[in-house]
Design a protein around this nucleic acid. Structure first.
Lengths: 191, 191
DNA sequence: AAGTTCGGCAAACGACTGTTTACTGAATGG
DNA sequence: CCATTCAGTAAACAGTCGTTTGCCGAACTT
């Protein structure tokens, strides 16, 4: 049933989804829905959890990596690209419902993205470049990275169905932007 | 009718909006809708145009400003804050429908944001800091700024209805992030 | 003054909606 | 082996929906 919903949400909003629509897609009777969820909103938050499980794995796989800034950037963009390619429906769902019409789902996504930022923050603190950074500075940098990741993922979502050229352009831009941020990071001391 | 739609879209998606719902809110008969729009999607793109008119004014008012990087950053964040405060429904509409379920609206928003990036790019080219920057570099910086503006506006949207403390925190973070980007910009030559 | 466009209405059409109810077979557990 | 939970069904409920049609007054054009 989750799969049926996710499939329908490819070109639809969660708020405009219907119970009958989902059960029809899943090959079940309408009443069967209520055996598993009270609401469509509940199905939404279930999809959020499903979507973010894979995201968590991805983030750790980037943060665990060691190496110079350049290799880290390349690897990060590569991982994002692959993740979007392999989890298109989930990523699209997150992008669409992050500011969507269903409060419970919005809040679930926001809370989870906040936890991501915290995780990224602790990982950044361990890097030598972050010597002397305040707690607030680390947090703001982590949020910048997470926001950038989300923007890039959204852009890739559209780019991948346009063509490989456009996808490459997005990836190149993302790498340049990360390089610029990393440059600003190395000169932060002055402030 | 546009006003009625915008009002309803405060806690709803465009895709889940109904013709009857709009006309009811506007105090008209259902048939009256079709005198003005063929679709609800058409009403959507009309709202996009309405929303982006005010945004255009805002952007120019920031870019026209002269002064040091610090003053420019403060002014930019200030202007965004005020804009979100004064145009809440429009901003929320843009954030919600940017990745929403109605293709025509999505494309209209994306096209317009692209034009914003181009405009920001030309403005950046005129600043002395951009001496020696390639066309591609300028474009990627402009996109970074636009994406950051969008993220900040979305965050402010939520923060302003939570409380002034949270709004201040978002604004502070945005300023720090812009400072870091501007720092990276000044050291870009090395690449 | 006559004709035409504009923006509005009520009514009707069939189709689709969310949800509840009572019922059923299969698996599970003691 | 019996009882119970689980996951499914069909049928029915009262609404709401999008859209078309024919009609009408006011305003504008010429």
């Amino acid at each position: 049933m989750l799969d049926a919903g996710l499939h329908l949400l490819a070109d639809q909003n969660l708020a405009s989804l219907g119970v009958r629509e989902v059960t029809r897609e899943a090959g079940l009777s309408p009443a069967a829905f209520y055996r598993h969820f009270p609401d469509l909103a509940a199905l939404g938050v279930a999809l959020v959890e499903e979507s973010l499980a894979s995201l968590h794995v991805m983030i750790r796989s980037v943060l665990a990596e060691a190496g110079g800034a350049e290799e880290l950037i390349d690897r990060a963009v590569e991982v994002i690209q692959q993740h979007v390619r392999e989890h298109r429906p989930h990523v699209r769902f997150l992008a669409r419902e992050r500011h969507g019409g269903v409060r419970q789902v919005r809040e679930a996504i926001d809370a989870e993205l906040g936890r991501f930022a915290a995780e990224v923050g602790s990982a950044l603190a361990l890097q030598p470049v972050s010597r002397g950074w305040s707690e607030q500075d680390l947090r703001m940098l982590a949020e910048l990275y997470v926001d950038h990741m989300v923007s890039t993922a959204s852009a890739l979502l559209e780019a991948q169905e346009v063509g490989p050229d456009r996808e490459r352009r997005i990836a190149d831009t993302a790498r340049l932007q990360l390089r610029l941020i990393s440059l600003g990071r190395r000169h932060w001391q002055g402030i």
